[in-house]
Design a protein around this nucleic acid. Structure first.
Lengths: 207, 207
DNA sequence: GCCATTCTAGAGTGACCGTTCTACCGGGAG
DNA sequence: CTCCCGGTAGAACGGTCACTCTAGAATGGC
């Protein structure tokens, strides 16, 4: 694996566990198996640039999970509920540590580190864009797709926080059930096309 | 105002803007208008104890908003949508800075500061308990109340993060609409047949 | 062989961290 | 008056911070 990637990956791991301010460069160096000097050789911008790279890397990886998990379900609403159940399981398996670094970093640095906030906004923007495009391919109207992806992301990020604090999977299940109901209500509103059994995905029209 | 309260209030303000690790004792002393020594006189536990007090204070204040905002609406579902709209407005008015300190601190310290995580869990616990009790008085079944309060809290905390990063109120509106639909479905549904193709008995505004 | 470049390695630097310490102030009790 | 004490004030302390600097090892072209 590329050294840059290894550093960014280690940073992402630390960010989601303890946030940006609490993560030290020396701690990162230890975690990444690289001396301090190497960190600054690969990322001349220092801690901030490493964090930015970590956010971008994580953001790209996370959004891929959406079609990966949802394509397995013909019923979109049920798929979304399963997605939340999966997130809950991951969270529990990692000892309630598996926060999303983008959320953590955004919450603590939006006012103090403008560059990181912009990177976070960029990542979230791709989430919304990619996600709403996917939901459109699953038969939702464009405005509904956007609403659903915002609802899913908000509920996920929030459930991460609640679950992390309470050490309970309940937030995920509640959020999943809620959005499942909403998506189901959208599907029944348009009895035109049943839209069932469709497996094609990944094909995207240029923007 | 009591000095202890003033310190905790200033801490809460800093926590929700920049989190726990990035908030220094000297910065807090400046913000609270008290010298370092006074801080340690009032809170022998230092930074951690002040943060704990801030979380408890904020938590108690926040949960009071729930009945305060929802009692104004006869229609519970509409009230919840209004609650999210209100949160969006506050967020925008404060320059997208108005995070919930409980969420921020939980996200960044759950693994590194066990005492703070426990305080956060205690606060969230009272939110769930108080909130579900309130929803029960509004006519929801007990299990539904619990689901709704978890969904509302998750969506709110998540929308804070998304909105803070994107500087947009859209997450709040999407989350509000979703939960409104869910609550409406709880109020109107007593279906004997699981037919989904049929329109629900209640009226639904398209939006 | 040579040299330049890339990357590793970690000691060094000044600034700031949370915390502790000492000094000081106002006022009630004797 | 003196003594005490809750509270104010900020200097001092050891430690850690992000970052820089210098030196050495590895690599590729000639």
């Amino acid at each position: 694996m590329d050294t840059d990637e290894r550093i960014a990956l280690a940073m992402a791991e630390l960010l989601r566990k303890q946030g940006y301010a609490a993560t030290g460069i020396n701690q990162l160096a230890r975690a990444a198996g690289a001396p301090t000097g190497s960190l600054y050789h690969h990322f001349k911008g220092g801690k901030r640039e490493i964090a930015a790279a970590a956010l971008r890397q994580t953001g790209a990886a996370y959004i891929q999970l959406l079609p990966l998990l949802l394509d397995a379900h013909d019923d979109l609403a049920a798929g979304i509920e399963a997605l939340f159940a999966q997130a809950a399981e991951d969270m529990r398996d990692t000892g309630w540590a598996n926060m999303c670094p983008v959320g953590t970093v955004t919450a603590e640095t939006a006012d103090t580190e403008p560059e990181l906030r912009e990177v976070a906004a960029e990542v979230m923007g791709t989430w919304v864009e990619t996600g709403s495009r996917y939901f459109t391919t699953r038969g939702l109207a464009e405005t509904d797709s956007r609403t659903v992806v915002f609802a899913v992301l908000s509920a996920l990020e929030g459930a991460f926080v609640l679950a992390r604090g309470l050490r309970s999977a309940e937030p995920f299940h509640a959020a999943g059930r809620t959005i499942k109901t909403y998506v189901a209500s959208l599907c029944t509103e348009q009895p035109k096309t049943p839209t069932r059994a469709r497996a094609q995905s990944g094909k995207r029209t240029g923007t």
